[in-house]
Amino acid sequence: SAVVMEEGSPGEVPVLVEPPGLEDVEAALGMDRRTDAYSRSSSVSSQEEKSLHAEELVGRGIPIERVVSSEGGRPSVDLSFQPSQPLSKSSSSPELQTLQDILGDPGDKADVGRLSPEVKARSQSGTLDGESAAWSASGEDSRGQPEGPLPSSSPRSPSGLRPRGYTISDSAPSRRGKRVERDALKSRATASNAEKVPGINPSFVFLQLYHSPFFGDESNKPILLPNESQSFERSVQLLDQIPSYDTHKIAVLYVGEGQSNSELAILSNEHGSYRYTEFLTGLGRLIELKDCQPDKVYLGGLDVCGEDGQFTYCWHDDIMQAVFHIATLMPTKDVDKHRCDKKRHLGNDFVSIVYNDSGEDFKLGTIKGQFNFVHVIVTPLDYECNLVSLQCRKDMEGLVDTSVAKIVSDRNLPFVARQMALHANMASQVHHSRSNPTDIYPSKWIARLRHIKRLRQRICEEAAYSNPSLPLVHPPSHSKAPAQTPAEPTPGYEVGQRKRLISSVEDFTEFV
């Protein structure tokens, strides 16, 4: 048969007729292969192709491409040299491709048809291009793949890379869960390890502090508590009631339409708007009261037996805890006409967050109470924005700035309102402590230090009264110190430094 060459192609190359033996071998191979691939376009007849790359030819070592076609129900084999250009295909004639002069020997084609199974398996396991790669995943090629499931790999992101949580363990979102698992493993320790309690022994800490320079003076030496005195035992138990972190309780009120001037209507609300609910979820963490331990979680007086509701929101960081007394989460009882059960919590909070959804101005004093010092007013606006402002009593104007209003988005509203309420509550605590000038409020841990110092002074006084020969370590507060001759004046800087060093040991009130 003659071949018409394309323009620009090399000279004529004689194409030899395939021997009958080659056709029989390739026909047997075509019957084993699956003929249901995917359909081509209507211009080209339905056909199945599979590209198999052999590394070497037997005796020649030339890479070839073998295409199996099922045109007219008769499979045909096409061998081509890759750099050459194939002729145009037609549905009426068999596929013809040019070969190099080196394939002119018909014996070479017979060798190609009689490829060993080793070469076929190696060509099938190679990388296939384009559409033949999808075909190689079918059941027909499963014989050339190794048996057994593939090893499982770690989760992959859409980009093909490992997620960040699997790369950096410290930033993994499941870090707290692993800590819980470690605690569970520790709890399952053997009885021999049960006595080993991690941490620092208080006796060891005391020993280090006792021999430090801070205890060089007799006034700073630790003293032993009497065991037989019940009054001192009660004082030590009272110390446990003062937490070592700051605590805040903040009221949250929802004002519906037409309720801006009605205290009873505001306290009777059992739910609010959708934006109000989203605002609550951002204030803190939802907790169930019956599962809380009052000595570990500050509840601000809420009952854990269901008297004040089942849930509330709280927030904490390293040095403070805040609980929100939310009116809509507290039960509304029919027998309580004046809502006294709610007001006994909300009316005693220094700061209230008022979500004013009424469309009218909310005035300070609508919720009557002796300790309502500051109101954080949240007014929802259009386009997911809110107006946040402050209202306070006249005696609080020096501590709280009420002249600045803020426009905040719904997303950042819980954070801004919480921070403003916490700052206002700190100012309210300082303002409330002014009624007792001898006990200015600095912080909870300073209050613990003052309680310890008062307890020490009482013990020293009782020891001096029981044994008059012992001198008083600290003179009583009601006694007057003996007159001392004025010492020589020293520079102001040295006096300030000495006073600062003494105050650092005794108390921190002056620095606050």
Rank of each mutant, 00 (worst) to 15 (best):
A421P: 00
C292L: 08
D295M: 04
V252Y: 00
R450E: 13
G258K: 05
G301N: 13
I326Q: 04
L413S: 04
R339T: 14
R454Y: 14
P442S: 06
G282Q: 04
I407T: 06
G272Y: 02
P476I: 14
K333Q: 09
I319C: 11
S229H: 12
R344G: 09
T366K: 03
K406Y: 06
I377H: 05
A463C: 14
L267A: 03
G496V: 08
Y355R: 00
L225G: 09
G365S: 13
W315P: 04
A464F: 09
E270F: 04
L501P: 14
F508A: 15
T509D: 11
K290H: 08
V252A: 01
T332M: 07
S268F: 03
V354Y: 02
N425E: 04
V408K: 00
I287P: 10
T490D: 12
G300R: 13
Q230M: 11
F362K: 01
F232Y: 11
P482L: 09
E360N: 08
V297E: 15
I266V: 06
V430C: 08
L470F: 13
R498M: 13
C392F: 04
P475G: 15
V351F: 01
G359H: 07
L329F: 15
D410Q: 01
L390M: 13
L390A: 05
Q321L: 15
T247N: 05
G359A: 05
M330V: 05
I250K: 00
M320I: 13
S435W: 09
F373N: 10
Y245G: 05
V416S: 02
Y493C: 12
K290P: 10
T379E: 11
R500Q: 14
F362I: 07
S352M: 10
S389K: 10
H325V: 06
K221L: 15
I407G: 02
Q419T: 09
S403C: 07
S235D: 15
G272V: 03
A463S: 09
G369C: 11
V505E: 14
A265I: 02
I446F: 07
K249P: 05
Q237D: 11
R234K: 12
P482R: 13
Q241K: 12
D291A: 13
N269Y: 01
G301L: 05
A464S: 09
C392I: 06
G306T: 10
C460L: 11
H478I: 14
P468L: 10
D217Y: 13
E288Y: 10
E228A: 06
L253M: 04
E257T: 08
L329E: 06
A417W: 01
N372K: 03
S235F: 14
V430L: 06
A464M: 12
P294A: 13
Y493F: 13
F371V: 07
T379F: 03
G301E: 10
C314F: 10
S479E: 14
P222K: 09
T485P: 14
L299C: 11
L239S: 08
H271A: 09
Q419I: 09
D308S: 09
R434A: 13
S409T: 07
R450C: 06
N356R: 00
P476K: 14
D295H: 07
P442L: 07
L390Q: 05
M426N: 01
A463Y: 10
S235T: 14
N436M: 07
Q497R: 13
L329P: 04
L280T: 04
R448K: 07
V400Y: 06
V416K: 00
G369P: 03
G347K: 15
K480N: 14
T438D: 14
F279E: 01
V430P: 01
V430Q: 09
D318A: 09
P243S: 06
P471L: 06
E510M: 09
D246H: 06
Q497W: 08
Q237R: 06
E462F: 06
S469Q: 15
D291H: 13
G256S: 04
P414Y: 00
S358M: 01
N227S: 12
L264Y: 13
P294Y: 12
F373Q: 13
E307S: 14
Q230D: 12
R275C: 00
R418F: 05
I377M: 08
P437H: 07
V376L: 05
